[in-house]
């Protein structure tokens, strides 16, 4: 059973240069994917590739220029306002920055009580005690001690604790999908894995689907091992497939460049034999609309690549490259 289905998503931002001229930036160009019930998929890409915009559209915080986001078959952007609010509740976004995601003027108790009061109203016939119980329940689900944390203000917590509170707050409204946008990149390294572990557990315990947006390939491997990864470049999917298939045998040069860029731990790992570096910077200007979007940076590009845009092709492992070719770029663990 398919739960979240995204079809042909497009988002164009228009910026006014001056009174007469305007410029269009295509943040998302034709992206389609599905997340099965309780499943996980990861979006991998550099900052500015459009992955955050996709997450925000899925969470209902932004409207797509074109395309649909279906939750159990209902289009969340074309539902009536009441239905829409209900659908938005079921898809919760965990933002990158836990320092901005909590209101500095509210204690953790207030932050959790607000959405719970709303839920209590929907449920009808539940008492104030239910709110208190739920509060303790969601906090222990994320591994925090309610008695030690409820009365605190956000600035008294570490980054890891804040992100746990943010996740607990999302759980108060009993969502079906969590969109985790770079959810661990601003947390101290030693605490990152703990939060990833928590998201993994929530999937198993509560059957919540996870859309994990990240630049960290290894993190996507930890959280989305049994799911799929989508590699995004300039708002397009350039490669998709089962997580381990893509990481161990990437066929698109961009995916290969990303995997080459992962640092190799001396003595523990050996670099892939065909590891390569991309020298040029990602830029938005001077973007020709013709040909492969990665051609200008691709070390393997031919004249043909600059002429036609390759479609996303393949069966279960898809790649948007005219010359898909598997290269040994991924580091290998030594025994």
């Amino acid at each position: 059973m398919t739960m979240l289905e995204v079809k042909n998503l497009k988002r164009t931002f228009t910026t006014k240069d001056n009174m007469f001229g305007r410029r269009e930036v295509k943040a998302v160009r034709d992206v389609s994917f599905t997340i099965p019930d309780g499943g996980v998929i990861s979006f991998i890409g550099e900052s500015g590739c459009g992955k955050t915009t996709i997450g925000r559209i899925v969470a209902g915080l932004e409207t797509p220029t074109d395309g649909t986001v279906l939750l159990d078959g209902i289009d969340i952007h074309r539902a009536n306002p009441k239905e829409r609010r209900e659908l938005m509740r079921q898809i919760q976004l965990i933002q990158q920055d836990p320092y901005q995601a909590l209101n500095p003027a509210h204690t953790i108790e207030e932050a959790l009580a607000q959405p719970l009061r709303l839920m209590a109203k929907r449920k009808a016939g539940v008492s104030n005690a239910w709110i208190q119980d739920r509060m303790a329940e969601v906090l222990s689900l994320v591994g925090l001690d309610p008695a030690a944390i409820l009365y605190k203000y956000p600035h008294m917590l570490s980054g890891g604790q804040r992100q746990r509170v943010v996740i607990a707050r999302a759980l108060t409204v009993e969502p079906k999908v969590l969109v985790a946008d770079e959810a661990v990149s601003m947390i101290d390294v030693s605490l990152r894995l703990g939060v990833l572990h928590l998201l993994r557990n929530l999937r198993e315990k509560l059957n919540i689907s996870v859309l994990f947006i990240t630049h960290d390939v290894a993190a996507s491997r930890y959280l989305g091992r049994d799911g799929k990864v989508f590699v995004i470049y300039k708002g397009m999917i350039v490669e998709e497939g089962a997580t381990d298939t893509v990481i161990n045998g990437p066929t698109h040069p961009y995916t290969q460049a990303l995997l080459s860029a992962v640092p190799v731990l001396k003595g523990l790992e050996v670099p892939g034999s065909q590891r390569f570096y991309v020298e040029k910077e990602l830029s938005q200007d001077g973007l020709s609309e013709e040909g492969c979007l990665f051609a200008s940076r691709c070390p393997f590009a031919t004249a043909e690549c600059r002429r036609q845009l390759p479609p996303l092709a393949g069966d279960s492992h898809k790649s948007a490259c005219l010359y898909p070719y598997e290269r040994q770029v991924t580091a290998r663990m030594l025994d």
Binding site: L193, A218, Y222, I247, M333
Partner: peptide, 24 residues
């Protein structure tokens, strides 16, 4: 030891990654 273990890698057994306990 805890720090090295707490970093997920792109190769090897991913389940060998173990979070570091406690708070900073």
């Amino acid at each position: 030891r805890g720090l090295i273990r707490a970093i997920p890698r792109i190769s090897g057994d991913i389940d060998k990654a173990v979070p570091l306990s406690g708070s900073p």
